[in-house]
Lab assay of single mutants.
Amino acid sequence: LADYWKCTSCNEMNPPLPSHCNRCWALRE
Rank of each mutant, 00 (worst) to 15 (best):
22 N>L: 11
21 C>V: 01
16 P>F: 01
18 P>T: 12
26 A>W: 04
17 L>F: 02
18 P>M: 14
25 W>F: 11
25 W>Q: 15
20 H>R: 12
24 C>K: 00
20 H>E: 03
16 P>S: 04
18 P>W: 07
28 R>C: 12
21 C>S: 01
25 W>P: 08
26 A>R: 11
26 A>L: 07
4 Y>F: 10
20 H>N: 09
17 L>I: 11
27 L>E: 12
22 N>R: 13
20 H>S: 11
27 L>S: 13
16 P>C: 00
22 N>G: 14
28 R>G: 08
4 Y>L: 15
23 R>V: 05
18 P>G: 14
19 S>I: 11
21 C>F: 01
11 N>W: 04
28 R>L: 03
25 W>I: 08
19 S>W: 08
26 A>S: 07
2 A>R: 15
27 L>V: 10
21 C>D: 01
18 P>R: 14
19 S>C: 04
15 P>T: 04
21 C>E: 02
6 K>G: 06
28 R>E: 06
28 R>Q: 12
21 C>A: 02
7 C>Y: 01
20 H>Q: 13
22 N>V: 09
23 R>S: 07
23 R>M: 06
29 E>R: 13
23 R>C: 04
24 C>A: 00
15 P>K: 00
28 R>P: 10
22 N>H: 07
4 Y>W: 00
21 C>Q: 03
24 C>L: 00
9 S>Y: 08
20 H>W: 07
17 L>K: 13
23 R>N: 06
29 E>A: 07
28 R>M: 05
28 R>D: 11
27 L>G: 12
16 P>T: 03
24 C>S: 00
2 A>N: 13
26 A>E: 13
21 C>L: 00
14 N>L: 03
18 P>K: 13
25 W>L: 14
19 S>G: 07
24 C>P: 00
14 N>V: 14
18 P>E: 14
17 L>V: 09
15 P>D: 03
15 P>V: 06
19 S>V: 08
28 R>V: 04
18 P>V: 13
23 R>G: 10
5 W>C: 08
22 N>W: 13
20 H>F: 08
19 S>N: 09
18 P>A: 14
24 C>T: 01
7 C>M: 02
7 C>L: 01
28 R>T: 04
17 L>H: 08
22 N>P: 09
